[in-house]
């Protein structure tokens, strides 16, 4: 997943109203008007703006039906963002493991390097 999209997903869910919208459309499609009715204290254009942020971040899908727009949860969206953080750590922890093991067993590193040199020599023959 491109980093920018991951970032957009994180930004999109950083807002409580948008998280509430996600929960609303989690189990089925809803038209924008009905979504807006759940947020009486928020103006209609503001709700539309939230829906646009969620759509741009790939967290909801939208399709037109007549003169309405229907929104629904796009499950893959959050999964990608979560997987990104997960991968970030597994990549880093693999590097930590390698560094700590090099420090703990310096002779092993030397042996490995020596082995590498000798096998290179082998290959050259």
């Amino acid at each position: 997943m491109p980093e920018e999209l991951m970032d957009e997903s994180l930004r999109a869910v950083a807002d409580p109203t948008r998280r509430a919208i996600l929960r609303l459309v989690r189990d089925g499609e809803l038209p924008a008007g009905e979504i807006a009715m759940h947020f009486p204290s928020i103006s209609r254009p503001a709700v539309s703006q939230h829906l646009r942020v969620l759509t741009d971040a790939g967290l909801v899908d939208v399709r037109p039906q007549g003169n309405r727009r229907l929104y629904r949860w796009r499950r893959e969206g959050l999964r990608d963002a979560a997987a990104f953080v997960d991968e970030l750590w597994s990549d880093r922890l693999a590097r930590l493991k390698a560094a700590a093991e090099r420090e703990e067993w310096p002779e092993r590193g030397r042996a490995a390097r020596a082995h590498e040199r000798s096998s290179k020599k082998e290959r050259r023959r």
């Binding site: 998280r19 750590w89 922890l93 693999a94 930590l96 700590a100 093991e101 420090e103 703990e104 067993w105």
Partner: peptide, 19 residues
């Protein structure tokens, strides 16, 4: 309830002091 947990475990062939 809105947040997520990422959990990972890695086995490192070194002492805890080193890690």
């Amino acid at each position: 309830s809105d947040s997520t947990v990422v959990e990972q475990t890695v086995r490192i062939n070194a002492r805890p002091e080193t890690v």
